[in-house]
Design a protein around this nucleic acid. Structure first.
Length: 801
DNA sequence: AGCACGCCGACT
DNA sequence: GTCGGCGTGCTC
């Protein structure tokens, strides 16, 4: 029997199956979708079995060396999905497979020197470095500067170098002790032990009352106040046996979730959920666009759909933009479905993610709530896939495989015969256009639950404030409102919409901003390390005290702006208690959640922050939302900037008055006439949609056109330019006259890690030959040759960089 | 991606 | 003459 294996080498030339003989001992054990270790050239690497064959066209087959799984980690659906994904996003098959699994399962490799001769034959220096088995890892050898000697020993045949796949079991294990003898004998033992062995008796008695006469060592020590040495003695004497049990890391340990039950739906909600439930019943893969204003109860629709799905013994995937930001969402899901929920998001450690994944894989849970990659959860009977806040850009992965979770969800729904729900108060233009065309089915929730009014939104023209001599960041209106909330003991959220998220250093005399020497980006100031860092290549530098350009001492730190706002706040309203949320205050794990819950408990009057506070915040006492500068995002060179501005303003406005108290919103801006700001006032999505669609049509942008972005980079500018020109003219020549080819132009970030970057943008409506052409371009230019350029292609890009 | 193989310049 | 630089091609 012969297995076809996709090997763990993400490169053009290895992006195909390699055949291996299946040794007798693995026959009947190896299945497709399992990870294996195979010899590949001189090394050993990991691979995925994708197929079996009777024979191979290759005649010098090697054997599969090792099997890493008992149960396939990729089922047949995910295997075929990986094929689809690699074709769709033009990525390597192995990358498509890797993205479906938790990072912990990605193989790590190790090179180890093994001694082949008796110790006397080796030099003393080498000998002292070897471990008990006569081995030394390549890494240690490098660290000790012994590579040269070892290489000599290898050529002399005294040692050899072996390649290993690190099979790190990421299982968290705990030490368990069990009574070694029967209960009867153990009880006798308690009687017969000497008086001095008081602690040992304690342990025996404790285990006698424990279920199955076993306990974790940790618990035992805690309960009986004995030390390790006691247990060690008892093990030695044979009173106890020890073993290890695998446990799950529980990211929500020490937290309990109040059980909740379904709410009575409003008429609107019932009308919206009905077609969804019907689709679930009929195994119909309709995509629904649930357009519901903020506070209209979309979540309850999700929850009740999932309930239905679970009642049919099927499973559900629920995607949220970034779950660590919405602990309230986790709470609602855990509250409703309890132990049946796995949670997957970027805030978890590698091990925690692995554990959550295994719960799904072993069918211990039926619901997963998670960020983008949770769309690949290995469920086998999906009943629904839900994408909340579907317009969020975080559903698009920005490195290979450059997929959009929405597309993957729709593709999986097809394979499982189940509906997809895309939910948002401000749908992306693409989705809404599809709903208008009838590709998606539109469901609308126009009213808030309990019929609360939408918050009152006031737009403040900051130019007028300035004209009237108010130079502060706060308009008189906002300040007055703020004061009012303080008096009434209600809470305020202040939102600073700032371009970017990081802080930098600028000279106030000459405008110098510290740039990374290898990348065309400014370096970021890191407060805790007191260093400048480049976010693209990791370059570090000292914080300058004088300007390197003009020697001025007026070189200043520009924070996220939140500190400045905070300073001003303490001057204007000194009695207010402020919680600031920005990169500086939320770097530590869980700090987000802590700050939010502190605010929720009323420990502060004002929550001040950037983008990160826009979502999921739902506290009854928030009655005022202030947006300090609505237009900073509007002037970014991005055709989606108006859409993003409108979405953001609508989202933040939705934070106010979600419960019985009415909410007000104050938006400060320098361009009140812009339609994305003007329409955020009434939160009129349809009007905004129509206007923005007109703009997109004129500009030939999505959803009227599809896009593909080709990024070409090389250390030599001339090389990049010439190749870019070649590609561009090839595109112009091969594509239809309908297609628009922009560029080549230098990328917005013109250089990263000393590589110059150019790009071509293709806008097209229908282009049958595009995929093959792009593949051909990748094949031609992405060769293994030394001097070749690097090419990335992003189909339907979100960020134009 | 690694790694070996092989072809050219600068040294004992 | 050989050591070692990097460009080229292969890995079942």
């Amino acid at each position: 029997m012969i297995a076809s294996v996709i090997v763990d080498v993400p490169a053009k030339q290895t992006d195909r199956p390699f055949d291996y003989k299946v040794p007798l001992r693995f026959q009947g054990i190896i299945k497709t979708g399992m990870r294996v270790v195979v010899p590949f050239g001189p090394r050993k690497i990991q691979g995925f079995v994708v197929d079996f064959q009777q024979e191979s066209s290759f005649d010098k087959l090697k054997e599969i060396e090792e099997v890493l799984d008992i149960v396939p980690v990729l089922n047949s659906e995910l295997l075929s999905l990986s094929q689809w994904l690699s074709e769709e996003t033009l990525c390597f098959r192995i990358s498509a497979m890797q993205v479906m699994l938790p990072a912990a399962m990605k193989a790590k490799y190790e090179k180890i020197f093994h001694s082949l001769v008796s110790p006397e034959e080796l030099p003393q220096t080498v000998l002292s470095s070897l471990n008990r088995e006569g081995c030394l890892s390549w890494q240690d050898a490098v660290g000790k500067g012994m590579l040269k000697i070892l290489q000599q020993l290898v050529t002399d045949g005294k040692m050899d170098l072996r390649y290993q796949v690190k099979n790190k079991t990421n299982l968290k294990k705990i030490r368990i002790i069990t009574l070694a003898k029967s209960e009867e004998e153990s009880r006798n033992l308690v009687e017969t032990l000497s008086l001095a062995a008081e602690k040992q008796k304690k342990v025996l008695n404790y285990l006698l009352i424990s279920p199955e006469n076993k306990r974790s060592v940790q618990e035992t020590k805690l309960e009986t106040t004995v030390s390790d040495s006691t247990i060690k003695t008892m093990l030695k004497k044979g009173y106890l046996t020890e073993s290890y049990e695998e446990i799950y890391r529980d990211p929500f340990e020490h937290r309990s979730f109040a059980r909740s039950v379904s709410f009575q739906l409003t008429d609107q909600q019932r009308a919206a959920i009905e077609p969804v439930l019907k689709a679930v019943d009929q195994y119909d893969h309709t995509t629904f666009l649930l357009h519901g204003v903020t506070g209209s109860g979309k979540t309850e629709i999700y929850l009740q759909t999932i309930e239905k799905v679970l009642s049919q013994n099927r499973q559900a995937i629920m995607l949220v933009p970034e779950i660590s930001l919405t602990p309230q969402m986790v709470e609602r899901f855990k509250g409703r479905f309890g132990e049946q929920v796995a949670v997957m998001h970027s805030g978890l450690s590698v091990g925690e993610k692995y554990d959550e994944w295994r719960k799904i894989h072993r069918k211990e849970v039926n619901v997963v709530v998670g960020a983008r990659s949770a769309v690949f959860a290995p469920f086998e009977k999906l009943g629904v896939l839900i994408i909340d806040e579907e317009h969020e850009s975080s559903y698009k992965q920005e490195d290979a495989p450059r997929y959009h979770a929405r597309d993957v969800a729709i593709e999986r729904a097809k394979r499982h015969g189940c509906p997809v729900i895309l939910g948002s108060a401000t749908p992306s233009l693409e989705s809404f256009a599809r709903a208008q065309k009838g590709n998606y089915q539109l469901l609308t929730l126009s009213k808030r639950m309990n019929n609360q009014p939408m918050p009152q939104v006031t737009i403040i023209d900051m130019r007028e404030e300035l004209r009237d001599g108010n130079r502060s960041m706060f308009s008189r209106e906002l300040l007055a409102q703020l004061q009012e909330r303080l008096d009434k003991n209600e809470q305020t959220v202040l939102f600073l919409n700032r371009r970017g998220h990081s802080s930098f250093i600028m000279c106030r005399d000459c405008g110098y901003v510290m740039q990374c020497p290898h990348c065309e980006v400014s370096m970021t100031y890191h407060r805790n390390a007191e260093k400048m860092k480049c976010h693209y290549c990791g370059e570090e530098a000292q914080v300058p005290s004088t300007c390197p350009e003009c020697q001025s001492e007026h070189i200043r730190y520009f924070g996220t702006g939140t500190q400045k706002v905070e300073e001003e706040l303490t001057k204007l309203v000194p009695q207010a208690r402020v919680i600031r949320m920005d990169v500086d205050t939320t770097t530590r794990k869980g700090s987000h959640e802590k700050l939010l819950s502190a605010f929720g408990e009323g420990q502060a009057d004002i929550l001040l922050g950037t983008q990160m506070i826009a979502k999921g915040l739902d506290f009854p006492n928030i009655t005022l939302v202030g947006v300090l500068s609505a237009d900073t995002m509007l002037h970014l060179p991005d055709f989606r900037s108006a859409e993003k501005t409108f979405q953001l303003l609508t989202q933040v406005s939705g934070r106010a008055g979600r419960h019985d108290k009415e909410g007000e919103v104050v938006i400060q801006t320098y361009t009140p006439e812009h339609f994305s700001i003007d329409l955020a006032k009434t939160q009129n999505f349809e009007l905004f949609y129509n206007q923005e669609m007109a703009m997109r049509k004129i500009g030939q942008y999505p959803p009227f056109y599809f896009m593909a972005l080709i990024n070409i980079s090389h250390e030599n500018v001339l090389k990049v330019v010439s190749v870019s020109e070649e590609i561009s003219s090839l595109l112009k020549q091969k594509l239809s006259s309908q297609a628009v080819i922009l560029g080549p132009v230098a990328s917005p970030i013109a250089r990263i890690q000393n590589r110059y970057r150019y790009q071509c943008l293709i806008k097209y409506k229908k282009e049958e030959g595009l995929k093959p052409l792009l593949k051909a371009i990748l094949n031609d230019y992405q060769s293994a040759k030394k001097d070749s350029v690097m090419i990335h292609i992003d189909v339907q890009p979100y960020i134009m960089m």
